[in-house]
Design a protein around this nucleic acid. Structure first.
Lengths: 186, 186
DNA sequence: TGTAGCATGTAAGCCGTTACATGATTGA
DNA sequence: TCAATCATGTAACGGCTTACATGCTACA
């Protein structure tokens, strides 16, 4: 019974596997969305609230998470079937290549349609957006300190966060360089 | 009459603005797909054939491209309305931030669910995939030589391609480093 | 003669979004 | 008491994909 689910389902399911101290965590839909916004959004997606609830229903239907009532609302935890479905997915499915949707790159491609000053303004705005995103990721990274050593709970999340920080830093350099090159062209 | 179309429509429409020598190009749906695969795919999307034809119909309905018959089949060219819709879109709409869907990063996040050797194998495979993608982009970049100087037709496409090449090179370094770190953890 | 590439679509369906709706709790 | 946050959904719809179908041309 191979689980045929979109990657986003497994991504959300995976967020339940990061236990604090006392075992795997239980989360309400609302909380799950917070966690996804803090982590998944940088390299996967930030699903809409309605999508999160829909996913939780589907995962529950299949027995991969189990709901229980709690003073916080309806909380979900991963089941052992959920955990093994995740492990199977990790081991046996093809990751596929990454997909980037980069509106700035797209508009730079079409730069011949507008004034260079328009393109430059766009790139400068992008630098600011980049800094804001980077700041948000820095905070995520900081929050992992203390449990980010090899074999600790947040080892892998911290590796991914470091990757993301490098990505932002490097993109900053590239954009700076593009601004310089376009400035010179004039 | 603001054109309310998905970004992909403008992306495809934009591909018609790169004239060779004798004005803007005319393309069949099939050819448009080839161009998109060679360029858009690296930082936007590679739309399915069926999607390309659907977009062409919609763009034609709105008068942004005009079809004409040709020995190659039905070819389309951008109209002046199409061109000004593109320019307006470039100047007046918000780009928004980039969205990355990176299955490798996602699976690295969940590395605690599998053997380190599984993660290492995944990262090594990713290095090879990265090299293949890079090679494809190198060829695109090379094909732009000769028209990539400031103010020439392929100036902006070549800036974007250079950006992409740097991106791939840097990701390679990051993955190498991750492999080293995970190796050491054991 | 058969396979690969060129050329053009239709149909079904999933993923995910926005808009809308509701209600409890907490703190300014 | 009013706004923000927590909490949970439904409905409608758009974007894009896969699967399917068709036919022509060039070439090995």
């Amino acid at each position: 019974m191979g689980q045929d689910l979109p990657v986003t389902s497994f991504a959300l399911l995976g967020l339940f596997t990061f236990g604090d101290d006392d075992g795997p965590r239980s989360l309400t839909g609302y909380e799950l969305k917070q966690v996804a916004d803090a982590t998944l959004r940088f390299y996967w997606v930030s699903p809409a609230m309605s999508q999160v609830y829909k996913e939780l229903s589907r995962l529950a239907e299949r027995g991969l998470v189990s709901p229980s009532d709690d003073e916080r609302g309806t909380t979900y935890s991963i089941t052992s079937a959920g955990r093994s479905a995740l492990e199977t997915w990790m081991r046996e499915s093809e990751p596929g290549f990454s997909v980037l949707k980069h509106p700035i790159a797209l508009r730079l491609l079409l730069g011949h349609l507008v004034d260079p000053s328009t393109t430059l303004a766009m790139l400068r705005n992008h630098l600011e957006a980049l800094d804001r995103e980077r700041e948000a990721l820095v905070e995520v990274r900081e929050s992992l300190r203390g449990a980010d050593a090899p074999r600790q709970t947040f080892r892998h999340p911290s590796l991914v966060a470091d990757w993301g920080l490098e990505y932002f830093a490097h993109e900053r350099l590239i954009i700076d360089d593009l601004i310089r090159r376009i400035d010179q062209d004039e």
